[in-house]
Design a binder for these strands. Structure first.
Lengths: 236, 236
DNA sequence: CGTATTATTGACTCCATTCAAAGATAGTGG
DNA sequence: CCACTATCTTTGAATGGAGTCAATAATACG
């Protein structure tokens, strides 16, 4: 199984400036490497954790992407977020030791785990990681607030933001900022952004016609990042 | 100045099971009382902290209510949340040591502070508070997710949820669950829920006519909590 | 008591949804 | 490899919920 990398430690990982060890010294990175476990690979559709399941720890995507999903009392699914390599998830489970959402692989995926027990150890011995975990948690919170504000905007702004945000995050991780594959269906994008799938289709087509992007099925090329950004950044 | 209560410690405070010391032992409560500072009283419209201001620490409302406000790049204000006694705020400032939102008193208000320096001390010496702070932070995150889901629902469900949620939180703090005063204008409620102020007015009137509530200006009486809850809980 | 802010109400408009049907794509087994 | 099926996407037309505009009424404030 060449895809599993159980032996790789944080300071050997290419995501070390984004993921758990962000902001830590070499020495601290070694400290946390004792506690953070690299887990096995999942296939598309498999769960990293399930809504309602016991809190095991905070996780980080190592490779691949995932969607964070929760259900409301009507039984409707809501895609809360898309997760890229180096991004953390599971903070929502700290409240009452149950995950409040499910994390599902959108393609072949590997992830690391900071186990619940390990957290207590680190709280005691590596205060700087505690601080850093709060920073990660706070970052998520700020992203959620941005998302709340975004959801008050019209459909074209939501989709422009969605694409630019994805582009920015991919770039930060060394992927192409202008060419990538959406792992979501129009249905799922609409679900995430609070739009009907038909609206997603129509707006993407408009962006395509206006020369901002090229989109064929799930393959996206962004032709004009500044112009696409301006759709939500300085609309009128 | 009889209104300031600088000498009151957490274990003397009536909010001790809701606020910072939630879940802590008597001994631990005494520990944190050395670090948590009671601050002076603010008048309506005054700021607890300002968006962009340096992170001073995590705060807790002691009495009164506040609104959490942020600005988008269009210059529009967004009311992210309403804060009641015992509720914590300021976690959003941990990301990059700047508050990402402003907290503004909606009426005469007093608050406590866990200063930034104090946090580091507590991380080292009271790991159980660290855990508890993560639980508070995680709770906020879950509330934000609920709010994101709510914002996809029609106007009447949003308002019903807004009122029931307020009622629940007030009850938990020993206030009346059925009779209270909104500290927000229709404009502000609409801003918070992503609705036009006219829509807020119309929906509240409908609730009034249907006998679910009595509303006169900002004074609210909820006549039928279960029925109001059912507006968003089992719609259709 | 008068002024400014806030709230109500009605009429009209529009953006996005819904419904519906056809077209494209991907995955599967013969 | 191709046909077949399921899933996903596109496109059009009609509907509707909430926004906007506008004018009046009520409330709060100095």
């Amino acid at each position: 199984m060449p895809l599993t990398k159980d032996h790789i430690t944080c300071n050997e990982c290419s995501l070390d400036n984004i993921c758990f060890p962000r902001g830590l010294s070499q020495q601290e990175k070694e400290h946390i490497s004792f506690v953070i476990k690299s887990k096995k690979t999942l296939q598309k559709g498999e769960y990293i954790f399930r809504e309602g399941g016991a809190f095991r720890g905070v996780l980080a995507i190592k490779s691949g992407t995932a969607k964070l999903v929760t259900n409301d009392h009507h039984g409707n699914e809501h895609i809360l977020n898309i997760l890229l390599p180096g991004e953390l998830l599971g903070f929502d489970g700290l409240y009452n030791d149950k995950y409040r959402s499910s994390a599902i692989a959108l393609e072949t995926l590997s992830f690391c785990e900071l186990p619940a027990e390990g957290m207590e150890i680190l709280f005691k011995n590596v205060p700087s990681l505690t601080k850093e975990l709060f920073r990660h948690s706070s970052e998520k919170m700020n992203e959620n607030n941005d998302f709340i504000i975004l959801n008050k905007r019209p459909a074209d702004e939501r989709l422009a933001y969605f694409l630019i945000n994805l582009s920015d995050r991919l770039k930060k991780r060394g992927f192409s900022a202008t060419e990538f594959t959406l792992s979501l269906t129009r249905q799922e994008i609409g679900n995430h952004l609070g739009l009907a799938l038909e609206t997603v289709s129509r707006v993407l087509k408009k962006f395509h016609q206006d020369g901002l992007i090229h989109i064929k099925s799930k393959h996206v090329i962004i032709h004009d990042i500044p112009k696409l950004r301006s759709v939500f950044d300085c609309s009128e």
